[in-house]
């Protein structure tokens, strides 16, 4: 029997606009810095969607989302720019986050 891998999706708002491509690498590095390499490799956080220049979704393995949230709290600058990351919502499906993100956008 093949077990389905389960993930959690975390909706994050940034304090300023960010370019998605430049952001992906630097946010991963920053989160890894605070989580540690071992926890990072288990959690495997990835940016999977960006709704606006300030609103994006990080996917992580279920059970590790609390560490991703905590690590994001400590991130204060990315590429030398001061920035704040705010966790707005976590969910088991990306669809429900999409609905919530639409409300935030409006």
């Amino acid at each position: 029997m093949i077990l389905k891998r389960k993930y959690r999706y975390v909706l994050i708002l940034t304090s300023r606009d960010i370019d998605a491509s430049a952001f992906s690498n630097s946010i991963s590095n920053e989160i890894m810095k605070f989580m540690g390499e071992l926890a990072y490799s288990e959690a495997n956080p990835r940016i999977v969607a960006q709704y606006t220049p300030r609103l994006f979704v990080i996917k992580s393995k279920r059970g590790f989302e609390d560490r991703v949230i905590l690590a994001s709290s400590f991130v204060r600058q990315i590429n030398g720019t001061k920035i704040g990351l705010y966790t707005l919502k976590t969910s088991g499906t990306i669809k429900s986050l999409m609905i919530y993100a639409k409300q935030v956008k409006d």
């Binding site: 609390d66 949230i69 905590l70 001061k82 705010y86």
Partner: peptide, 15 residues
């Protein structure tokens, strides 16, 4: 002391 130091309630609970 500035916007970048703010945290959401979810982050505060985790903290």
């Amino acid at each position: 002391e500035d916007e970048s130091c703010l945290l959401s309630s979810i982050q505060m609970i985790e903290m």
